[in-house]
Design a protein around this nucleic acid. Sequence first.
DNA 1: CGATTAACTTGATTTAGGTCAGGACAGTGA
DNA 2: TCACTGTCCTGACCTAAATCAAGTTAATCG
Lengths: 195, 195
Amino acid sequence: MSNFEAFFDYIQEISGKLLSEDDKQLLMAHFKPKKLRKRQYFLQEGDVCKYIGFIVKGSARTFTVDEKGHENVLKLSVENWWLADFESFYLLTPSRFNIEALEDMEVLQSTNAQIEEFLKHIPAFSAMQNVISQNYTIATQKRMQAAFSYTAEERYEDLISNYPHFLKRFPQNMIASYLGLSPETLSRIRKNSFK
Amino acid sequence: MSNFEAFFDYIQEISGKLLSEDDKQLLMAHFKPKKLRKRQYFLQEGDVCKYIGFIVKGSARTFTVDEKGHENVLKLSVENWWLADFESFYLLTPSRFNIEALEDMEVLQSTNAQIEEFLKHIPAFSAMQNVISQNYTIATQKRMQAAFSYTAEERYEDLISNYPHFLKRFPQNMIASYLGLSPETLSRIRKNSFK
DNA sequence: CGATTAACTTGATTTAGGTCAGGACAGTGA
DNA sequence: TCACTGTCCTGACCTAAATCAAGTTAATCG
């Protein structure tokens, strides 16, 4: 199944290790393919995030809704990224986040208990986890710094240079929210940066 | 050496596993105790972060300096926390951060290469790493959300409830910077929250 | 296809928080 | 002892970005 081929490639590439036939069988047995239509929710606020998903195709946003009904995008995710509220997933607490498909999606999903098994039995899988957690640590450190010490404009420039494809792929108001800006402000920044 | 006792306790507690005598010997052989005086730097911007440090005693701040000479505190660290710019530490790139002792400190430090060895040979150590990276992921997710969707006042309330001891331990201008505020603003928030 | 809804732009106004400036108290050190 | 430096407070002013409002363009769907 082509879904899994992309997934296997990803694991092998990022971990720098090969998956055996047994490894692949184990993964195929416990990662369930799931389709989500645009606007469908992978996770709803208040629910426990029972599944972690690997995005084979499509994109999603992770967001909160505050008391005034204002939506706040924390994360935009595309192919070869993982989808979960890790706090809820690890601790089994109700999530404060929503995760919603922005395009039709194909996801491979599994549970916390099964992930533990993969980590125990598949060397490439646990190597992958280490690399991901390193990357995540680094990326978050950068994003925190940007959030606090950059202006709106600098954050936008930063996004352009780090994730240029986001601009084509996501509506501008999502990008604005992801940058912590109102849609109006982003529109004005873009207008000014043209001249 | 009492330094190491606290360190061993920490590893065993957080990992849920015991350290053997051999494990302890290995750790003692490759974690070097180091003293830092108040104001001394553990890491300077531009240098590669060759060491990771475990704080046995004292506290530190991780900060950047922007073009205008404005300091920006990203992290405040106390006993039983780790000290490093992980991007620089993992990738061996020059760091954009400074790490400075805010009090006299005792640190146990080691290198990236040695950490790899510990992970390979000491089960409690790699279990610890997994727990830490989970906790870190969760904490960062929260902090990101706070940074983007909370007001100055809410961020301060949040700090009070999560890290009340920070308020006694760190000067107010450090706290302000950590919260992404000017010292004046924090002062005013405190004034208002008294009545 | 036209009808509705969603996405983007632009202007006018407001506001949270920053910046600048002055002063009150420590704590430290020659 | 008294300057010196760092920390905190308070007031006056300013500015980046949010909010409100209205209009335009682009997507979506029956």
